[in-house]
Simulated scan of single mutants.
Amino acid sequence: MFVRTTYATGDPATLDEAVQALTTEGRRQLAGEPGFRGAGMFADRELGKLVTGTWWEDEAAMRASADRMEKVRAQVLSSFATTVTVDNWEAAVAARAESVPEGARFRLVRLDLAPSDADSLVDAFENGVLPRLRTMTGFLGGSLLVDRAAGRGAVGTLYADKDSLAASRSPVAALRGEATSRARATLRSLEEFEVVMVESPPPS
């Protein structure tokens, strides 16, 4: 599968208005797109940051939706966003959560690496990091997204609540160090968010 991410920042006071628009009009538009396979939305209400990810069955479906969704995005984020960054990714490893309770939390890690090391990063996450994450209390799911040509990666992980997210920080820091060393990757950012919505793939 493939994923389009949007990273928007703006006035925290208007973030809820954007969330409302995304979960109504934005969601309605997405549901009608061929190849749409689910979405997630994550917020930092204190700083005014909003991250979304939309899942697509293949790269062709993701790219075919680009122009239509750009218009929708501009409309629903107009009251909030002062900066918007959109990226397209391959979902190299996807262990998606079966269900996400209210109060769940999300951690986002972004990485830089040589394009030739992308497979090493995939192996490190799939066979090293993910099995150990699955043993942690409150872990719900996680995915590794890669842009092989640009030499970039993004890891998103879901936790059941604020306490399990906090408890994971020390052991996950060690895992992160091992994986980045193995894949010769450089950490670009580490952020944590409130989960606003995680939507499973629509019925086929």
Score class of each variant (00 low, 15 high):
8 A>L: 05
11 D>V: 02
12 P>C: 05
14 T>P: 06
18 A>G: 06
25 E>R: 15
26 G>I: 06
27 R>S: 13
28 R>W: 09
29 Q>L: 07
30 L>A: 14
33 E>D: 11
33 E>Q: 14
35 G>R: 00
37 R>N: 03
38 G>Q: 10
40 G>M: 14
43 A>Y: 06
44 D>Q: 06
46 E>D: 11
47 L>T: 13
51 V>G: 03
53 G>K: 05
55 W>I: 00
55 W>G: 00
58 D>Y: 01
63 R>P: 00
64 A>D: 11
66 A>K: 13
67 D>C: 01
71 K>P: 00
74 A>V: 08
79 S>A: 11
80 F>M: 04
82 T>S: 13
82 T>N: 14
82 T>C: 03
83 T>H: 10
83 T>C: 01
83 T>G: 06
90 E>C: 02
91 A>F: 00
94 A>L: 10
96 R>S: 02
101 P>A: 10
102 E>Y: 09
104 A>H: 04
105 R>F: 05
107 R>L: 03
110 R>D: 14
110 R>Y: 10
111 L>N: 12
113 L>Q: 13
117 D>N: 15
118 A>D: 05
119 D>H: 07
120 S>P: 00
133 L>T: 04
135 T>C: 02
135 T>V: 09
137 T>Y: 02
141 G>H: 01
144 L>K: 07
145 L>F: 13
150 A>L: 13
150 A>K: 14
150 A>F: 11
151 G>H: 11
151 G>Y: 08
157 T>R: 07
158 L>T: 09
162 K>C: 02
164 S>Y: 04
167 A>M: 04
168 S>F: 03
175 L>A: 08
175 L>M: 15
176 R>G: 13
177 G>N: 15
177 G>K: 13
178 E>V: 14
178 E>G: 15
180 T>S: 10
181 S>T: 15
182 R>W: 07
184 R>T: 09
184 R>V: 07
185 A>W: 12
185 A>N: 14
187 L>Q: 09
194 E>Y: 05
198 V>R: 10
198 V>W: 14
202 P>M: 05
204 S>D: 03
